[in-house]
Structure formats: C-alpha cells, structure tokens
Design a protein around this nucleic acid. Sequence first.
DNA 1: TTGTATGCGTTATCAA
DNA 2: TTGATAACGCATACAA
Lengths: 333, 333
Amino acid sequence: MPARSGTPGMIDVARLAGVSHQTVSRVVNGHPGVRPETAERVRAAITRLGYRPNATARALVTRRSGLIGALLVPGPDTDLLVAGIEREVRAAGRTLLLAAVAPGDPAAERLLDRVVDGYLAIAPTPALLGVLGALADPPPIVVVDGPATPLGPAVAPDHRGAARALTRHLLGRGHRTVHHVAGIPGTHGAAEREAGWRAALAGAAVPVPVPGGTGPAAGRAAGRLLTARRAAGEDVTAVLAADDTLALGLLRAFADAGLAVPGRVHVAGIGDRPEAAHLVPALTTADTAPRAVGERAARLLLERVEGRDGAPQDVPAATLRPRASTGSATGHW
Amino acid sequence: MPARSGTPGMIDVARLAGVSHQTVSRVVNGHPGVRPETAERVRAAITRLGYRPNATARALVTRRSGLIGALLVPGPDTDLLVAGIEREVRAAGRTLLLAAVAPGDPAAERLLDRVVDGYLAIAPTPALLGVLGALADPPPIVVVDGPATPLGPAVAPDHRGAARALTRHLLGRGHRTVHHVAGIPGTHGAAEREAGWRAALAGAAVPVPVPGGTGPAAGRAAGRLLTARRAAGEDVTAVLAADDTLALGLLRAFADAGLAVPGRVHVAGIGDRPEAAHLVPALTTADTAPRAVGERAARLLLERVEGRDGAPQDVPAATLRPRASTGSATGHW
DNA sequence: TTGTATGCGTTATCAA
DNA sequence: TTGATAACGCATACAA
C-alpha cells in the first residue's frame, strides 16, 4: 500500500468543509439536493486545497473513462484526420489517447489494456483490425479511412471520387490516357484511388500503375521511372499521383528531365495539401476533406459511445481544384 | 454500484485456476515465488477467459498510470516533434495522452484531471505554463521547444543556430543584407530564429522583419509585401523565412511578380521539411532535427518519471542544407 | 509457495 | 438535505 498521496482527495475537502466526502462528490458532480450554503463551503474548500477529482478512481467505479482511443497507422493525411478527430473529441469534453501503430506492432495491445470508452481505428491494417476483433466485450469502434467491418462502421474520404474527377479532368484536356502513381500498398486509400482512376479510364488505354507510396522522394523516383518509360516511347503526357506529396516529387523529376510541367507532361495530385496551391506551377488536385472526415468519424463514435446509435455519416464529395499543372495536351504538341 | 462487468477480472481467473486472486496477480506481474505448474494453470485460465488487466484499477493503487501527457500548441514542426516523442514513449512501454491546446483554451485542465506520470509541454504559451504551475504536487514536467522554466528543464531545437547559419550563408554569397519573415508571434521558436538572424547580421543593415506566421498562404502574403518594398527601392535580394512553408509561399509570390528565384531574389527557409529538397528550385534550409528533439525530450522526461534524475540532453546542431534557391547575388547583377 | 486482509479515491445505494 | 457503507479491480504487507 503506497503512502497516502500528497494531492488532496475528497476526504480532505470534506474534512475542511465539515461535511462527508459524499456531499463533496455531489457538489463536484453538480447533483441536486445540496443546500446552497453547504455547497458554497465545499467549493471554498476545494479551491483552497486545489482539489482536482481523480479521474482514475472515477473511471474505476463508473466504468467510463472519458477517453477515446485512436489507433493510427500513419499515412498521407493522418495529420488532418487526427486534427479533425481531436477537435471533435475535445468539444465533447473527452480526451484523446493516441497511439501510432506500425502495422503489426504490439503497441495496439497496450492501448487495449486501458479503459477507453471507444476506439477509432485510423487507416487500419487487417492485422490491427484482428487485434481489435479479439477483444472480449469490445467498446464501440469506428473505422476511419478504411473499409466497414463487422467491428463497426467506417467513415472514409471520397478517394474514389477524387481520383475519378481528376482523371476525367485530364482526359478532358485532350490526353489519350492518364498514368497513375500508386499510394501505399495495401491501404484502403491507395486501393480506392486506383479504382477511381481505372473507372474514369474506361475506354482509354490503362497503363500499368507505377509503384509510389507517399512522400516527395518516392514521387521523384516514380517520376524518373515514368521519364524512362516516356523515352522508351510510351504515351506519358498526364499523370495522376495518389497524393500531393508524390506529385511534388514527380514535378521535380520531370523538371530534372527537362520536361517542362505544364507543357510536355501534366501532373495532378490528390489531397489538396496547403502547399499545392502555392507550388510553381500550382498543383491540380482534389480536396478530400480529411479533416471533415475525422470530425464525422469522431462524432459517429461519440454517439455510439453515448448510446444514441449514430446515424451513418455522410462525407463531403471530393472537390476538384484545377490549377496550372494540368494544361491542355493538344495545346502543347 | 454498476452491474458486474462482462469482462473477466482477476477473481474470475483465480476461480477458474483454483487459486487466489493474489496468485494471479503474481503471475501477471512476473513476481517470483510461484510454482511453475501453478503459474501454468493461471496462464491457461487467463488465455481461456481472454483476461486483460484493468489498467485503471492498477493505476489507482500504484499511483502510476504509464501515461505521459503531452500538451501541444500547434506550430510549424509539431508533427515531427510528436513523432519523435511518440516513438520514445512507446519504446518505454508507455502510452501517450495527447491534447492539442489552443493557446489559453481550457482543454489543458482536462488532461490535468487525468493521472499522468509526467507532462511534456510542447511549444507552450505562458498561459499553458501557468496552468501547469498551478498544479499541487505536480509530476515531472519537460518543456519541448520552449524556454526552461522553474517547472522543469527544456529541450529545444537549435533555432538560433539555424537562422544564423542561413543568414551567414546568404551574406557569404554577396548579399548586402538579408530580410526576415518572422514566425508565429510570441512563440519561442520565432523569437529564437529572429535572434539568430539578427546576430548574424551584425554589421550589416537590419531590415524591419516582415510579419509571417506559418504556412504557404502567410508566406505568399509576406512575399507580396517584400515585392512592394523592393519596388519602393529597398534592397531586397535575400530573404530568410522562419520556416519552410513560409519560404514556399515566398517563392510563389516572387514568381508571380516575375522576380525569378534564384536570380533576383534568393530565399531560404528553416526546418528542412521533406518537400524542401524537391521543390523547383530546391529550397535552401537548415535541418533542426525536430524529431530528434522530440525523442530527447521524451527520454529526459522518462528518466525523471522513473526517478533517475535525467542528465540534460544535448540537441543536434542545425545543419545547413544549401540548395538552388540561394544563389550568388553578384552573379546576377 | 500460497492465501487473507486492507486500501487506492471515487460513485451509488440506502438509511437517517 | 445529508451521511454511512459498499463496491470498482487491483497490488501489497503480512500471515499461514
């Protein structure tokens, strides 16, 4: 048994106010049926001692911690997803417990030992979902940027619509086909984006997608590969990158190769990162509103956590942001 | 008293294994003095029931939660700072409790009600430090990217060195002076960067800093302002932006104004964001290793949390990354 | 080697 | 309107 802690507890407050700890509890939780003057005495004691309720003890008895756990597999727009989630969770008076989880890493387990009122699985891998599925008596779960599963509903950005709109945009500018630099293999977002691209390509030739991933460095590598393909005679005039950071690398690679952009090769990204509008040339992209997605996902989870069985949340459709990087193919030949 | 929960507890395991809950506790915590076969029976029961220790109850009695609280005021490199912290906290077998805190927002209070073993204050405002200071019997605190305070030591990136090195680099290329687009007002990072710039300017004319903030949009606005100043006859040939995202906006603004970069105006950023190397022209910047800073800060805190009074942590010196955006002034006149 | 008893700080039930 | 008292699930001192 550890020594009595230095921080004051309800009992200390009670003693000072000349009441029972139970009355203190009532005051702290705003329960009715406390005489105003008693309450006042208690509040005075609270401020005098600097008393703060012990959330752990409270959680132990109420079986609700006010914590929302987020298991997060890092990807291209996790930051905005998390920003939206954080905002919503905080607005609800709760606290976010965040664990970045390398796919297959045991950190997930650790968070599971905590008492959380609900889980957000952000861009989860199958392995991660497996871990969540193994929970006995699991709390509500919402998947963010992933497929719906038996564990719970999903809220995901309109990856597919974004890719489709961009591809169509490029085709509409006269390109015979559009190449694709793929996202992180095995992720929901990458699969959806590729699917949207394929769908929009209906009729046109479907080139082999170029392996990408995420980040400017990966994009640059992909750009070198496409440059080579072009030199080998392939019809590379338009490229859709799976995210804006890849697109940035592509832009650079094409510049290195002397293929002025926009001019001989046109490039589009996905995600509308803040920098996209300010690049030279400004990057054509589509906004998938990851922040709003995070907010909706959190809201859905919170509704479920609170028992109100949340309505499925709509997600804003991707909105095209045409910019200088995608000119007209015919105009430049 | 809530209904007995659905999830199994030690008592359930004990009953199934035919031992006391105390023996289960010993097995779970790896204490010695349990006969191997007994331990085996207990472990079997644990897996059979899917038992997971209740971290809340454990925290209540041990007065240690395994949680590290991070109060975070968003800024230019919070993402990398947090990445480093997360990594280190996880490696220590602990969990990170993250709260983004708008300056002066009461969310901090909420996190304070939790039982955390230690606090990381990331780029804290004075108000935030005030809240932490008001804690009775506070746990160990380490400031990340801020000044050391009576509350605890600080670990911060080498902002000053970065700004100094970059300014010197520009002066060395023949510029008569270097302009500065400032960071977020009131932050430690912005103050340090500006101080480094001033220090390096010793002797040269010190222009009035341009208000910036962070982000490409703010940078673009600052760029327009500098363009106007130049048109008005000021000697604007080199600019140090407080961070890379500002620099990106500057690049764009100068391009808009027909001031080819590098050519008539030279630009440097700070931070070495991944995209800096891949911009066209590639951005000269300095790496302040925020990720390493996050790791060191977390390590220092963890040492203090564990009683080993942590040695002050060194932080890597900023390393200059000269690139195309900063050419020679004389070569272009 | 194992079990019993007690307390961590709170909320909830019930009686006063 | 208030106060005893019993949980919540676990770890620890101590007894067996």
